[in-house]
Every structure is written in C-alpha cells, then in structure tokens.
C-alpha cells in the first residue's frame, strides 16, 4: 500500500500543498496536477492507484475530466474521489452518475478524514484485483 501513487488534481496552490503533505505523511507517493488537461496526461502516464479530483478547474472542468477518465480503458478502473467546494446536489449526482466513488465538500473534511477515505478505497481496489 505504501507503494501506491495518488494523483492529486487541485488548482488552488495552498490546498494542493496541504493535501499533498497530508498524503505523503501516510507513506504514499503523490503526483499533482493543477488543471484537468494535465490531470489526464498524468493519469495515462503514471497509472495512479487513486485519483483525487477537484471540480472547478481551468482548461478542463473536473466533471469532464472524470467522464474522459472513465471512458478510457486505460484509466477507467482507477477509483476517483471528488474534492469539491460545491454542495450543489446536481454536481454530486452527476459525479456519482459518472462513476466517482465518493464526493467530499473540502471545507467540511479534515485531512485526516480524507486520508482515511483514501486508505479505504485503496484497500477496496486492491481487494478487487486479488483473485
């Protein structure tokens, strides 16, 4: 599990730094992207074990990036957790419909809670892979 690579997609510099630090403290490798386009290319290149995806981003909105990730065989299996500051039900429903595993309103969750969620989903993904 400590060899897992997390792709963190977040356009706010401070949030990105804080979240990256929190994840690294738990022993995971972290790669970061500031926008949807970079997120996609990193996802294809690095094949992360899990993706944390912000919704409001330049160049490619999060929901669109999610749709593209889920529609490509190379990346469709990677669990995606949405990190958003929108509590609009329509955003949450759309993300769920597109296949996101969980949806977090960032301002309501601690780094600890997010870390625990990431650990949970990584474990679930590994359990699925093992025959």
């Amino acid at each position: 599990m400590s060899h897992a690579t997390i792709l963190l997609v977040e356009d706010d510099r401070i949030l990105r730094r804080a979240c990256e630090t929190g994840l690294r403290q738990r022993g995971w490798n972290v790669v970061t992207a500031e926008d949807g386009e970079r997120a996609l290319s990193l996802a294809f290149l690095q094949r992360p074990s899990l993706i944390l995806l912000d919704l409001l981003m330049p160049k490619l909105p999060g929901l669109e990036a999610l749709r593209l990730l889920r529609s490509d065989a190379a990346t469709a299996h990677i669990p995606v957790l949405i990190l958003s500051n929108s509590s609009r039900p329509s955003d949450r429903e759309e993300a769920q419909r597109l296949g996101a595993k969980e949806y977090f309103v960032k301002s309501e969750f601690s780094l600890q809670a997010l870390g625990e969620a990431v650990a949970r989903h990584l474990e679930a993904a590994t359990a699925e892979e093992t025959p």
């Binding site: 706010d12 401070i14 949030l15 804080a18 979240c19 630090t21 929190g22 409001l56 500051n85 929108s86 309103v105 960032k106 301002s107 601690s110 780094l111 600890q112």
Partner: peptide, 17 residues
Amino acid sequence: SHQLRTPLTGIRWMLEL
C-alpha cells in the same frame, strides 16, 4: 459560499498540519 470555502479549507488544512 463556494468562493469563501476554498480559502477556508486552506486555513483548516494548514492548521491541521
């Protein structure tokens, strides 16, 4: 609200660290 939440999250997470 959405605009306020981002810097607020920054404050909370940095305090946590």
